[in-house]
Structure formats: structure tokens, C-alpha cells
Design a protein around this nucleic acid. Sequence first.
DNA 1: ACGTGTTTAGCATTAT
DNA 2: ATAATGCTAAACACGT
Length: 261
Amino acid sequence: MPRPTRESYGDQKPPFSYIALTAMAIWSSPERMLPLSEIYRFITDRFPYYRRNTQRWQNSLRHNLSFNDCFVKVPRRPDRPGKGAYWTLHPQAFDMFENGSLLRRRKRFKLHKGEKDSLNAELAALASFNRAFLARQAGAPPSAQSLANGGLYTPTSTFMSRPSPEPVEAPDTAALLPAGPRPRRAFTIDALLEPEPRRSSPSPSPSLPLQPHCPLPLPPPYLLAAQRYHAELLASLQQSCLPPLWTWRDTSQFSHYTLNS
DNA sequence: ACGTGTTTAGCATTAT
DNA sequence: ATAATGCTAAACACGT
């Protein structure tokens, strides 16, 4: 229960569009991506106005997520089950708002057909990749379909690429993810599963002794692989980002979010 | 049943 | 005045 702040606008409607509110929510999260329910929560936590008539504005917000190319729906990692996908911002959409102010949008962000197609192709590949992982986890042989598509994930990293003028700060998630160079070429499920982990025996031991320094058992290989590809995706998402921080700015007249001051 | 997601439509507001 | 952008409603598909 967040205590009411000046930034909350009390019961007044905040001067932000749904696109701006959603961008705030996404950008305030450590990974720069949130599931729908968390976007809702961000908004209702900070803006009491949106604690009422939830059906109405949430419908509008979902409409915006789907309708606007600036929002990208990212499939969940297999080790993060839950409802719905994650939503993030397309890196090329950061100059959507005039000098970073979220009060006014400068232009509508629209992808060209080719860009959109390649983005969708890559995201579809990720989704298939997920399915293939889950099939593995369940011990079921991958379907012909998942072998055809999901079995091979080829990060193109072209759809979002843009020269980044400044050094990009490491994503917050980097610490959570296995260190090491990004994979350079297409990698298959097998390639991801095989070389990385040391698995001395298929199933170490049914007995309990866990490493004392390791609170959790070693993640299974598919999980490591999932983390690797997710890191890959995040890297490409953030590679071309402007310095990634929405900051709270409180002026005497009004409060609003800006992009990095 | 419900949450999520997509799409179309119509009207309002704002920018050029 | 026209186009661009924003808001709301609504129908529908999908998966759990």
C-alpha cells in the first residue's frame, strides 16, 4: 500500500496518456518488461484515479498494448510460468516523447512492414523455443513443428539494431544471468543443453545433500539455456537504448516523468 | 468464468 | 480544415 504522494494526483486524472502510463510502468521495472497485471498494479499503486472504473481503462490499456508498435510482447521464459506474456518497449520508440517528457507524444511510433515481420518472426521463434524447452522438461519428444521452428532459434539482432552513441549500462538482470560471451551463431536446443553444464550423472543423487553454499539446487540445463536466450533477447532490446532510466521529476507546478532528466 | 490479447469502429481532442 | 493522436466500447479468440 503505497502512501499517497503529490505525484499521485490524488483523485484527479493524471495528465498522462495510457501509452505514457504503460511506458512508465515498463521502464520502472528492473528488466524493463512487465506482465499486464504488473502494469495494472503500477498504475493503481501510484494513481488513485485508476482504482475505479478498472474495466474501462484496463480495456483501453490493453487496446494500446496491442495496437501500438512501440509495445512488444515478449514470450515468458519457461522457468517463469504465469499468466500472459511480458510487455516491453521497442528501443526505437524512445524518442516517441518530446525530449523525454511523457506529457506529450511527439509522433506515433510505427514499424514498417519489413521490420514488423522480422520482429514477429523472431518473437515467434522464441515462443517456439519455449515450447520445445517445456516439451523437453516434460520428457516428451519435441513435436515435428517445434523441431522445425522452435528447435532452432536464430537471433537476428537486426530488427532493433541502432548505433548506440554512449556506452550502455549493463542490464540489471545481467547479474542474474550466467556470465559469458553472447552466442555468436544460431543455437539449437541441443547446443544449448549439451556443452554448458557439468552433469556428472544424469540425476546427481536422489538424496538431499545440497551444496552448503548454494541455497538452491543447480538449475537444470534447460533452465540455464532459457536464461541464456533471455539474456540474448534483453541484450538486443537494450543495446540500442538511450540511457535507460525514467526518473521522477517534481517541479513546483506539476510532477511528471521524464526520460533521464 | 476469467484474464489476456487482437481488432474494428466511432467520437473527442490536439497539432499542423 | 485536415490529419494525427487519444479514449472508449465492443466483439471475439484463446488458454486455463
